[in-house]
Design a protein around this nucleic acid. Sequence first.
DNA 1: GTCTATAAAGGGATAGAC
DNA 2: GTCTATCCCTTTATAGAC
Lengths: 194, 194
Amino acid sequence: MARPHAPRGQGRARVIDAALELFAEHGVSGTSLQMIADHLGVTKAAVYYQFHAKEDIVLAVVESAFDEMRGTIADAEAAASADDATGVALAGLVDLIIGHRQVMASVSRDPELGRILESHEAFNSLTSRLGELLLGPVPDTRRRVAASVIGGLAHAAADPLLADIDDAVLREQLLHLGTLLLSSGSPTRTKATS
Amino acid sequence: MARPHAPRGQGRARVIDAALELFAEHGVSGTSLQMIADHLGVTKAAVYYQFHAKEDIVLAVVESAFDEMRGTIADAEAAASADDATGVALAGLVDLIIGHRQVMASVSRDPELGRILESHEAFNSLTSRLGELLLGPVPDTRRRVAASVIGGLAHAAADPLLADIDDAVLREQLLHLGTLLLSSGSPTRTKATS
DNA sequence: GTCTATAAAGGGATAGAC
DNA sequence: GTCTATCCCTTTATAGAC
């Protein structure tokens, strides 16, 4: 292809870093190519030299996090029991959230980012596999709600109010809360829910 | 002051309903006035007749939910003990989330919406008071993280995957999970945190 | 109260100079 | 590899006809 490779590829990496930061702060829809260019001190055309479309930037921003997620999910799916699988998936997800705070927060919150990812089958497959791992073999209502709240962990990790908490401590807290959510016994006297 | 539906006439209410739906689906930045107008089958100018600027629509969309939140917070602050205050605040927040799923999800996720609200002192005061109620008098790290994850409850309530769960059941589940998050005892049995 | 028309600005994207 | 200049489209917002 005519696409130039990225030798010491600083160009592409710099665009990705700037985009990541701006996407997290303004959302994908709220971030223009002009903003990215300004943030780097270059022109829009310089950005277009590295990426031919905004969507390509979006995909590049999430790529490394999703590569890691692929590995985690494969590990979890190879676990001996369903409970082990859930545990591995949760721990992997928390690690992912800690290691890619801004990306994971954007993925879980940004509607436009979600729509772009949904249009790529590889991402759909990953998220549905992760969903199945967290839900377990017999997803009842309680578990389904809990799994959905797990998405809130990414939100918390990117919360500016928690920016002072260091990674190891936050990781431990999120893992604790995630485990709690997934293992909470009987809520109250719940009736059958259809 | 009933506005479940605005069959005809009430132009403002119809705009607010359409905007609410589109904001939840595309985010504020991803929703143009043209999309709102198209959704209503009218022209942009008809929308501008009702609201002079996009920001006015945003504020109108969140207004009723925040009115309710004001009442809840006042109730909670009048509670006898700090624990009671937290309980009342959490229950009120869950009710708010159930009664205004789309608004609360947008408030907790949308960066542009957050920026608009932050520029209005009345909203800042409300959210910081709610934060203090959820954190309690002595906010340690565990409690701070948990309070942040509470924001994930709104996310779950608007999750399309949970759309089949009826309000009463979802309310019960969210209240249970929220209580669990705020009361989780010893975070770590594994190792000391630094 | 709703329309057409339009202004003014900004956004995505491309061509081509250097 | 980065720039200038430009195209085309969309967006916000206003003026004024009906």
